[in-house]
Design a binder for these strands. Structure first.
Lengths: 325, 325
DNA sequence: GCGTTCTTTGCTCATATGAGCACGCGCAGT
DNA sequence: ACTGCGCGTGCTCATATGAGCAAAGAACGC
């Protein structure tokens, strides 16, 4: 029964899916009633013999999204299909596209959107369509405009997103990390900076990415940290950075001294936010993604299938809550 | 239109196939009429965005079979799925299984079945179920019983197939290739041998495989030919052997002198047969498969998907008919 | 500007499919 | 043997889907 029924269900599936026969026709071919065929087909599906895949760069993985939402307690999850993706480039692009799509269809439309900056966010900004919303103001939530070697990327990301929505951008005129705590305090209390930070903390939604904790980080690239600094952070458990702040696998700040010199929205504000969207893709970022999701830094995650599955596997339900400072 | 419709059809497909929504539900989600959704879905399928695959060791590829039948003018074609097959072993086994299944469901049941011998055929015999038919007599169509190193494989193949069908086996008591033409003639005219050959030429159906033209061939393994002999044959265009006879890519005999010393059914008998089933699998046998199919040696081919696609690509419609002798 | 033609849209209707149910068969306990 | 239970089977009926069609709309030439 088990054996022969399995084979029959395969034959039925071949005729149904590959030959577009009706269940009735299959019935007469295999000498079965059409109800039996229906059950065989259901059985084949249930046993996982039928694999249906949607192959398209814009395809999403709804079942994975659901699982991700459920196991990680996210308000929403966007998972892009990873099938047939050869290079990281493509994967980044697909994810950014998905994030752009998500933003564009977001309801209610946020009046102010707080964003970080970096390669990923810039990618999102470029994938957004002109007129994706009307009148969304964009605020930077962490510093880093001027020092960035690829001058203006951070600024242009914000400006592009705002322009395409017919709103205007507010930049955070400050470095990402200051060398001395006093300088940081001084800058922070500067009226212009304080106003932006204030605006940022009141944003309706946040959109940010995360960086890996290695020498390829934008913070290294921009000269805020040396590769050695990063190595030391890694030694102390850093898995990546979120809006310029290095966190360990529990999502806790790795180096409070460094963090104190970092300008921008504190991570707690992200955690408290009604809507904070993280865009994280690629195998290199699995660890940060886990930290971000596990520690409640985002309510919505946009990612690739592989990363999503990784997160589900290692269900990032925080086991130990805090780390030693 | 093209752009937005494509995206919509992907969204619809996700909801339909991955979330098991009804077209009507999708309609209300995407703000479309259910007919539009239906069309979008049809479009997605037509554009090839929906890939349905049946993952099972016994799964076949009906559409490929159809194409193979049509482009190669075969009476029937059996193509096994190659998805997720790691090793050659598995592929051989799947193909043999399919051949066994095909034999078992063959109608009308042949009264006498002519078979060759070798690893593939032996595999088929082992996959046949006991009682796969009732009263099928089996005849060997080419020599090679005694000399074979793996003693008795050829004989056991025939006997197994016959036994499982409740019929009896007739072996061809002769080497595959004789060293001297006179010996061959003498053996051929021996009453016992002649009777078997006569029986063989009158079989209702033939089942055979093909070997590659290299040192791994069973003919080398059995000591009928030396690796050097084979190299020479290859130099002269041999792509493999069929029932002990080496053919070139047009399916023509490579070395008529050698062929004259080979005992067994001539290839012309296979070509003239009402029903001759070739079982050929594996990348190494693409060339022989092409020769067999292209020169009409079989009316039915059992093979793997990869080989089938190769045959379809290089549609083996015989371009030049005969080769120089 | 106007008619023509081709495409797209929303429909009706026939068909295909799935849910739920009652029957009958086989099996075990008494 | 009898009876109760469980399972697979084939059914009825509601629902989902696809074919075909007429009208609306867009694109084009005159």
């Amino acid at each position: 029964m088990i054996e022969s029924d399995e084979l029959l269900s395969i034959r039925a599936a071949e005729l149904y899916y590959e030959e577009d026969k009706t269940q009735d026709e299959i019935g007469s071919i295999l000498a079965l009633t059409r109800w039996k065929v229906g059950r065989l087909l259901a059985q084949a599906k249930a046993s996982g013999f039928i694999r249906i895949e949607i192959v398209h760069p814009r395809a999403r993985r709804l079942p994975v999204e659901r699982r991700l939402r459920e196991t990680c307690g996210l308000a929403d999850a966007i998972v892009v299909s990873t099938s047939g993706v050869d290079d990281q480039e493509e994967l980044q692009s697909r994810t950014a596209q998905a994030a752009a799509d998500y933003l564009a269809t977001l309801r209610p439309v946020p009046r102010t959107l707080g964003i970080s900056w970096g390669r990923t966010l810039d990618d999102v900004s470029r994938h957004l369509e002109d007129g994706w919303a009307s009148g969304v103001d964009v605020v930077q939530i962490n510093g880093g405009v001027s020092l960035n070697r690829r001058a203006g990327t951070a600024a242009s990301t914000a400006v592009t997103i705002a322009q395409k929505a017919g709103g205007h951008a507010t930049l955070l005129p400050s470095p990402a990390i200051l060398e001395r705590l006093e300088t940081k305090r001084a800058i922070e209390s500067d009226r212009a900076v304080a106003a932006v930070l204030d605006l940022a903390s009141g944003a309706d939604a946040y959109l940010f990415s995360a960086g890996t904790a290695d020498a390829t980080s934008v913070l290294v690239d921009s000269g805020y940290l040396t590769p050695d600094d990063v190595s030391e952070l890694v030694r102390r458990g850093a898995v990546g950075d979120v809006v310029g702040r290095y966190v360990n696998s529990n999502g806790a700040i790795v180096d409070p001294r460094l963090d104190e010199r970092t300008i921008g929205l504190p991570l707690e504000s992200l955690r408290a936010a009604q809507l904070s969207i993280a865009v994280i893709a690629g195998a290199a970022k699995h660890a940060v993604a886990r930290a971000v999701v596990g520690s409640g830094l985002c309510t919505v995650l946009v990612t690739d299938e592989e990363t999503a599955l990784h997160l589900i596997e290692n269900h990032p339900t925080v086991q130990d809550s805090e780390d030693h400072a």
